[in-house]
C-alpha cells in the first residue's frame, strides 16, 4: 500500500480509509483539471498526441 494509505489506516477502518483515499484522489483530479490547466491551454486544437 502507499505511504498515504498507511498513515490514514492508523485513524480509520479499512473501508473508511479507502473511501477517504478515493475522496482525496477525486478532489485532486478535479482541482488539477479545473484550476491548474489554463483555459487557453485547454482549448488548444493542435497538440502532440503522438501524431
Amino acid at each position: 500500500m502507499t505511504p498515504l494509505y498507511n498513515k490514514l489506516a492508523r485513524f480509520f477502518s479499512p473501508i473508511m480509509t479507502r473511501v477517504v483515499m478515493v475522496t482525496i484522489y477525486s478532489t485532486l483530479l478535479i482541482t488539477i483539471v479545473l484550476f491548474l490547466i489554463t483555459r487557453t491551454q485547454f482549448e488548444l486544437i493542435y497538440l502532440d498526441l503522438g501524431r
Binding site: 491551454q41 497538440l47 502532440d48
Partner: peptide, 9 residues
Amino acid sequence: GKAITGASV
C-alpha cells in the same frame, strides 16, 4: 511539444 489540453483530459 507536449501539453495537457482538452483532448488529453
